[in-house]
């Protein structure tokens, strides 16, 4: 299947270009981004340093002593013209164990009340869906996930927390995500995972990759503590 080939290629400063497919977050655009990223990973353009795929764009960084904007641009347009939309029949599925509620998920009660649900129902809905990793960004290993049910959508906290523990699972509006490192943040925290999303000593350092499918599995506090101890 040939993808919709229309894209804009513009400078992102003097040493990068931005390929923008659309200004929408949808599966088709995601597949085009993924497909171009795959091409670039397999056959890097001469002078390319690295690339960053996002929801609807890819930035390509280049060494301006080795290549030019024009050369990179035409290389990218050639690749984009022959893009095969990647439809992955067997995407990599990653299960993330989560201990919901209690001191590890201090906002679970708020999320439940806000949506007229019980805490148990929130957990069932959150762990019942499959989520697509649209992109990794914001922080090392942080996944932007699509697919959360509107039934548990909750606005951000009025006052952001100054420090959020790594592994915290949160909800912000209709998005859900996991904080890989300690950071300030305004998400409603419903649980915590013992699984490290950012592993600087491993290759790749991010547990999740764009295109992966994520499932959350509820675990007990005992299992959480045991996994933390064993580092798994």
């Amino acid at each position: 299947m040939t993808a919709n080939r229309s894209c804009r290629v513009t400078p992102l400063g003097d040493s990068a270009v931005l390929v923008q497919f659309n200004q929408t977050i949808d599966l088709e655009t995601h597949r085009m981004v993924k497909s171009l990223a795959k091409d670039l990973g397999q056959r890097p353009l001469p002078g390319m340093i690295e690339y960053i795929p996002a929801f609807a764009s890819i930035a390509v960084f280049y060494d301006m002593l080795q290549t030019s904007f024009t050369a990179i641009r035409s290389g990218l347009l050639d690749l984009a013209a022959s893009l095969e939309q990647q439809i992955d029949d067997r995407p990599n599925t990653v299960e993330i164990p989560v201990c919901y509620g209690g001191e590890l998920g201090p906002d679970l009660e708020f999320v439940a009340k806000h949506n007229g649900l019980t805490e148990e129902e929130v957990i069932q809905i959150h762990s019942g869906n499959e989520y697509l990793v649209y992109m990794i960004g914001f922080a090392p290993g942080f996944p932007y996930l699509g697919g959360m049910s509107e039934q548990i959508a909750t606005p951000r906290r009025q006052t952001p927390r100054l420090s959020i523990h790594p592994g915290s699972v949160g909800i912000a509006g209709t998005q859900t995500g996991v904080y890989p490192i300690e950071t300030p943040g305004g998400w409603q925290l419903i649980g915590r995972t013992p699984t490290a999303l950012f592993r600087p000593s491993e290759h790749p350092p991010s547990l999740l990759q764009a295109g992966d499918i994520v499932r959350f599995r509820p675990i007990s506090r005992e299992e959480f503590d045991r996994r933390m101890e064993q580092g798994i």
Partner: peptide
């Protein structure tokens, strides 16, 4: 929609005061 940024990107949040991204900037 979130997309890549780089060193020296000058972005403007809703309060209108620009931010110049430097070495420890986010990737997007």
């Amino acid at each position: 929609i979130s997309e890549a940024v780089t060193a020296g990107t000058i972005q403007v949040p809703p309060d209108g005061n620009p931010i110049v991204l430097t070495a420890d900037r986010q990737t997007t």
